[in-house]
Computed example of a mutant assay.
Amino acid sequence: MTTKKPPIPIPLLMLIGIMAISFSSIFIKWSDAPASVQGMYRLLFTSLLMLPFARPHSGAVHKLSTTDWVLLIFSGIMLALHFLLWMGSLSYTSVASSTMIMALEPVFIMLGAFVLYKERTAASAMLGVAIAIGGVCFIGWGDIGVSADNLKGDLLSVGGTAAVAVHMLISQKLVAQMPSYLYSLIVFSVAAVVFALYNLVMGIPFFDYPLTEWGIFLLLAIVPTVFGHLLFNWMMQYLSATTVSMSILAEPVVASILAYLLLSENLSNLQWAGGLLVMIGMAVYLWAERKKVDSVPPALENAS
């Protein structure tokens, strides 16, 4: 994990990113288009918005090795799979249940980071993870797996969580050696192409959608993708994949509140209590990670 300090305070960046990605499930619920179409245009529009600002990073493209390109393509495939499965899960289960399962992402990433990068997590940080995971379990307890449709949605969300964990682990490796902006642009473009091929093979229409749907596609690109995923990819220059994913544990809390306000999805007292546990768990984890960074000797810190 790098110890560079970002030009903007990390807590502010995390707050912006969490708020942005929390609107994703709301926009998806508002749309009647297939999940694969939502995902395709979400990533296509994001790539088009990013393209005019990519020129300063164009020189880095020539430095990419064959291995880098393979990893970039695989990361894009995993991102597309994440969106396809998770966005699809919202057709079968509630926002609270789906985002609760997605919040298990740090568990997948911690295991992967240990296996691939030998990245160890302090006991105090693990305690924070346990508290936060317990909190998100409370959030989704009221409606998880009680019917065949809910169970299908839950399984789709688990698959989407595993896919995004792989995507984040690849991000940690590649962003350390190439501009995060270029990484995001390439991966988003690859994922958009994957969606286009999927829709073509499945015979899903590309254009036959009302104007309101196109507005939702654009909102999905700007809000949760640019100010969410793109921002979190950029933060990977300064934080580990585990730390970034841990911040996303706040998404079930914010998304559930938004679903209550905008979709009339009710929350129980147990779910509100879970939200409090998530915040406590995040605070414990981030405190433990900050202690680890602060303990790095100055000479080693400058070497990064």
Rank of each mutant, 00 (worst) to 15 (best):
G228W: 00
I170K: 02
V37E: 00
V190N: 01
A54C: 07
F45E: 00
M168F: 15
A54F: 07
A35K: 05
V254P: 04
P297V: 07
Y285K: 07
T67D: 13
A192Y: 09
A113G: 03
G88V: 01
I26Q: 01
M50N: 02
A283D: 11
T212D: 15
T2R: 14
I186V: 11
L277F: 12
L111H: 10
V61D: 04
L262C: 08
S180Y: 13
T212E: 15
G228H: 02
D32F: 06
S264A: 14
A103L: 12
P6T: 12
F195S: 04
A283T: 15
T121R: 10
E289A: 14
K173F: 08
V193F: 04
S184E: 06
T243L: 14
S31P: 07
W86A: 03
I222A: 05
G76A: 08
W234S: 06
V61S: 04
A299V: 13
V190Y: 03
S89M: 07
G145F: 14
P56V: 03
E105Y: 15
L239V: 08
E289M: 12
K152V: 05
R290C: 06
G145R: 09
L231S: 00
G17P: 04
G145V: 13
L239E: 12
D149Q: 12
I222K: 01
K118P: 03
T212F: 14
L239K: 12
F27P: 00
I109Q: 10
F188H: 11
W214V: 09
V107F: 15
L197H: 02
H167W: 10
A125S: 07
S256K: 12
N302Y: 03
I170C: 03
G160H: 03
S268K: 02
N199V: 03
L84E: 06
I170L: 08
I73W: 04
W30F: 09
L200D: 08
S147W: 08
S184V: 05
G203S: 06
L174P: 09
T225Y: 01
Y285T: 06
V115W: 09
L84W: 08
A196M: 10
M78R: 03
P9T: 06
W287F: 14
A259I: 08
H62W: 11
W86G: 02
M235K: 01
S184A: 14
A123D: 06
G153I: 11
M19C: 13
Y41K: 02
L218C: 06
L185F: 11
I101V: 14
P205T: 14
V194A: 02
Y238D: 06
L277P: 02
A113S: 09
P205S: 14
M178W: 13
F27S: 00
G281A: 01
V193C: 00
V146G: 13
P205H: 13
L84C: 01
L15M: 08
V175N: 05
Y183K: 08
L48N: 02
I26H: 04
V158Q: 11
K118H: 11
G17C: 03
F45Y: 01
L44E: 00
A132T: 08
I139T: 05
P179W: 10
A54G: 01
M246N: 09
I109E: 08
N269K: 10
F114R: 13
A283Q: 14
L81V: 05
S91T: 07
F227L: 15
I170N: 04
M1H: 15
A35P: 04
L249I: 13
F232D: 02
W214C: 09
